[in-house]
């Protein structure tokens, strides 16, 4: 790439060419290509969303003839969404989702925050052992413990309850690990000062460390709610009645009721189930992304 050294006095034409190059036409072309690639990818990503929304307002007979015609001939949304909400207790499924997610998150935080503080800043004999257990726990997927937990819950006659849906997730070793990493960076001097001021360890945790960890707590909450709102495996295992069904389960129940007939209502149902998290994401987009980055890159 050794360019011939330009003459001492470039000609006017050459100068003009160089000026033109300062505008970097290669960059403009590059930017255009980049946009084309990104838009093509975006179409792939958005396709199901768009089709879901379009179909959810189509008339049933039009669904079968629409092909890839994007614009619905007539607006049938009210009927479809109404049908979805009447036919299946979708709102109840979502209520169940809220109860389950909230219950799981609260217990996870109550368990993980003190444990993380103990692991990060307190000296006690079994600390190294506890930390090893946490690290090991990080590698174990939740499906591994499903069998024994199912048997245990069955023997206690607790199947098909909110408790059964929530209990395997009360412990989040990931939360313990995340908060421990966060607390580890907290200056020891402030904790010493607080002890000298007469704070108990519990007060130090609640009044000093937890407020400082709010970004991490928010990030973890995003992570926890997203994964448990959308989780299918365990609710499918322990839930038998629609009464306690979480949104994904509800979607399956609804789909089975509607097999092959009313796609408009089915898509409306999917839109309803998907809406809460998507809307939350669109509003709190930054927090979501930051949450994923913080919880993702350990």
């Amino acid at each position: 790439m050794t360019a011939p050294s330009p003459a001492l006095k470039p000609t006017a034409g050459a100068l003009f060419k160089e000026r033109l190059r300062l505008l970097r036409p290669d960059r403009i072309v590059g930017g255009l290509v980049a946009h084309l690639v990104l838009i093509a990818g975006a179409l792939f990503v958005l396709l199901p969303f768009v089709w879901m929304l379009l179909t959810s307002v189509r008339k049933p007979d039009e669904v079968f003839t629409a092909g890839f015609n994007p614009i619905p001939d007539s607006f049938h949304g009210v009927e479809n969404y109404g049908h979805a909400l009447n036919q299946s207790p979708l709102l109840q499924f979502m209520g169940n989702g809220v109860i389950v997610c909230a219950g799981i998150l609260v217990v996870q935080l109550l368990v993980a925050l003190p444990a993380a503080y103990a692991l990060a800043k307190l000296e006690f004999r079994i600390r190294p052992l506890l930390f090893v257990l946490v690290l090991l726990g990080l590698t174990v997927p939740p499906q591994v413990t499903a069998l024994p937990l199912y048997m245990g819950l069955a023997s206690l006659d607790l199947l098909d309850t909110y408790f059964a849906i929530m209990v395997p997730f009360f412990l989040s070793v990931f939360a313990i690990f995340l908060f421990r990493q966060f607390f580890k960076t907290f200056p020891m001097e402030i904790i010493h000062a607080a002890r000298l001021d007469g704070f108990t360890e519990l007060e130090i945790l609640i009044r000093i460390l937890v407020p400082s960890a709010l970004p991490a707590i928010a990030a973890f909450s995003v992570f926890s709610i997203t994964s448990h709102w959308n989780d299918l495996y365990w609710p499918l295992v322990v839930t038998t009645s629609p009464e306690h069904a979480t949104p994904p389960l509800g979607m399956m129940i609804f789909r089975d009721q509607e097999t092959g007939s009313n796609y408009g209502a089915l898509m409306a149902g999917a839109a309803i189930i998907t809406a809460p998290l998507v809307i939350t994401f669109l509003i709190a987009q930054r927090q979501f992304v930051r949450g994923i980055t913080m919880t993702g890159v350990k």
Binding site: M1, A3, R19, L22
Partner: peptide
């Protein structure tokens, strides 16, 4: 060195 470099890239 008396030679205009405005049109040159850093490496040049």
């Amino acid at each position: 060195g008396g030679r205009p470099v405005d049109h040159l890239r850093p490496k040049q």
